[in-house]
């Protein structure tokens, strides 16, 4: 008898833990984040790669850029855009991505918070649009 109570308690704890997403969210899903394009980006109209590819692969692009700069001293990225025109980019996180996406908090971080990604890049790299005097 005594054991039955313990077993039922254990089972209840198990079910409670494993169903936590159902009750912690309280049945309410927050709106899907819509990254806001900065005015500069809006003026430029296109990203380095087509939008769909950027959304999925921008970290791999950045990885390629990083390796190219740090290992091979290659800083220029040349790519043909949708109209077949060659474009040149300086392979730089702060000076290219964030020069166009000047609103990191409204753009990069919107998605990243939702997807729970915390790029460690900002340990070293700066957001040039933030003019706070640190140090």
């Amino acid at each position: 008898m005594n054991d039955k109570i313990k077993i039922i308690a254990g089972l209840a704890i198990f079910v409670l833990i494993f169903t936590c997403p159902f009750w912690i969210n309280g049945g309410k899903a927050k709106d899907v984040p819509k990254p806001v394009l900065s005015e500069k980006a809006l003026a430029a109209k296109t990203c380095v790669l087509p939008k769909d590819e950027m959304a999925k692969n921008h970290m791999q692009l950045l990885d390629g850029w990083r390796n190219s700069v740090v290992r091979n001293e290659q800083r220029v990225y040349i790519i043909k855009d949708a109209n077949g025109i060659e474009k040149e980019y300086d392979m730089s996180l702060s000076n290219t991505c964030l020069a166009c996406h000047t609103n990191k908090a409204e753009f990069c971080d919107k998605c990243h918070e939702y997807a729970s990604v915390n790029p460690y890049c900002w340990d070293c790299h700066v957001d040039p649009n933030v003019k706070e005097a640190s140090l």
Binding site: A29, V32, P33, A55, K56, Q60, Y114, A115
Partner: peptide, 9 residues
């Protein structure tokens, strides 16, 4: 590489 935001939705 899949669309994480869509999957989380």
């Amino acid at each position: 590489r899949v669309d994480i935001v869509a999957i989380k939705t």
